[in-house]
Design a protein around this nucleic acid. Structure first.
Lengths: 246, 246
DNA sequence: CGCGCTATTGAGAGAGCTCAATGTGCGTGG
DNA sequence: CCACGCACATTGAGCTCTCTCAATAGCGCG
């Protein structure tokens, strides 16, 4: 029997959280009953803008989102990439004003959750509050790793590291098949994520390909030599905190 | 009448939180009753190490702490600086393993808080849980700003931006006097925070000084021209989320 | 068929790095 | 009170990673 639309969507969140913490049956029931408002975004479309004061946040159901800041004369830094099961703007629940913009990287389906509902749940169910808090902390852990790359890793290593990270994150939500996954970035957006120019990304990616580490074509990326990639990137997935807790 | 030592220390946290959210009398009472264990650290001493699984976190009472990651061959990225009133490793409450190291930047006094006590409080007082959650979100907001600097700002602007940030953060806890504050970094640690080499930091700082923006001597930094500094850095303090909420 | 977006390539320039030497201030011990 | 050691700061010179500018190529879609 097919699930209701709202159940199907909340299921994404449950699956994600359940992969990281222990959820009781009650927890699951509560999550399944959150009112959701499903919405589609086109690639490149802004969802919540820098400076706004949102009263809802969004759960990614399908496609990728990303967050970015703009500084003088069109310079852009991409702060994070978000895949299904994540709530990229959960911070807006406790921080009134957006200090960056959330947008769709590809065509994307998201489920909006009202802050009032989040408040109701976090007040009544401390364990669920803890789960959500934890998600925002993992977010921050990823920021720390990116900072380290931006400050101390060269272009080649930094790119390799990002590929490792996205591979592991997508694996965790079942979106990798045959070492292959959708990687819906343009070279320009990849450049903005890595703090480079698109010209240099082009050369860096070419090197990664010609060194036999990966292939990337038509928004599909395939890992050719995981071991070498991990070695190059000095990739240690601890910071993704995928282990269960609580 | 002098406060008890533990009251005096918890007061630091209350003052900090009260500057950002509304605390009820009950909230304050709860905070004042947290068992604390005060401890001193020498400059440079590690407090919690990468890979550890701490069962407590620490409130800064005096001095500065910092967090960092080490990568191959001694490269170091400083991820954050922490001043009195902050709880730099609060994330360890929900993330079992440390993905970075917390250390003392200067001689520092901290108050240790057991995770069990945090759990007791956050479970029973959702509003306080929210306050603490919010603190970790502000942490993450600062990460985002630093990432933007690391990826997209040049050395001069990045350094100016950090000075602006620390000025505002210290102002908020009353540690600025006459546009002057303690800035206990060496050029080497500043370099690791900015993702530069100490040689380049030396030249960058010289430029900031000779452009009449600031002075910095004997670990004391004075802002000479705040307006120009803000303009150079394109500094907008929104991301510090100093406005009250909730 | 042609427009628009994305990717690719070349060549020159520059911000920031590396290596290495020198300077400065301060605490310690004789 | 001076000598010494140590940590930190400063400076020079050459180098390289990444950027800028600009041109060309490929591809999907109306």
């Amino acid at each position: 029997m097919p699930l209701h639309s709202s159940e199907r969507t909340a299921q994404a969140l449950i699956t994600k959280l359940a992969g990281r913490v222990s959820l009781t049956n009650e927890d699951c029931q509560v999550l399944l009953n959150i009112p959701l408002h499903v919405r589609e975004y086109r690639s490149g479309e802004d969802i919540v803008h820098d400076g706004e004061t949102p009263n809802q946040c969004c759960l990614v159901l399908d496609g990728w989102l990303f967050r970015y800041k703009l500084i003088d004369e069109g310079k852009r830094q991409i702060l994070s990439l978000h895949v299904p099961g994540e709530i990229p703007d959960l911070q807006s629940f406790h921080l009134r004003v957006m200090d960056h913009t959330l947008a769709a990287l590809s065509t994307a389906t998201v489920a909006m959750i009202a802050h009032t509902d989040v408040r109701r749940i976090t007040t009544k169910y401390p364990h669920l509050a803890g789960c959500l808090w934890r998600e925002t902390l993992i977010d921050a852990a990823i920021f720390r790793e990116w900072m380290t790359g931006l400050g101390r890793r060269n272009a080649y290593v930094r790119a390799a590291h990002l590929v490792c990270e996205m591979y592991v994150r997508l694996e965790a939500v079942g979106l990798v098949e045959n070492h292959t996954f959708r990687f819906p970035l343009t070279q320009e957006s990849l450049a903005d994520a890595l703090g480079l120019t698109s010209v240099h990304v082009n050369r860096t990616v070419r090197a990664l390909k010609s060194d036999g580490l990966l292939t990337w074509k038509n928004r599909e990326l395939t890992i050719i030599d995981w071991h070498k990639l991990v070695t190059v990137a000095q990739f240690d997935p601890t910071y993704l905190h995928l282990m269960k807790m609580g």
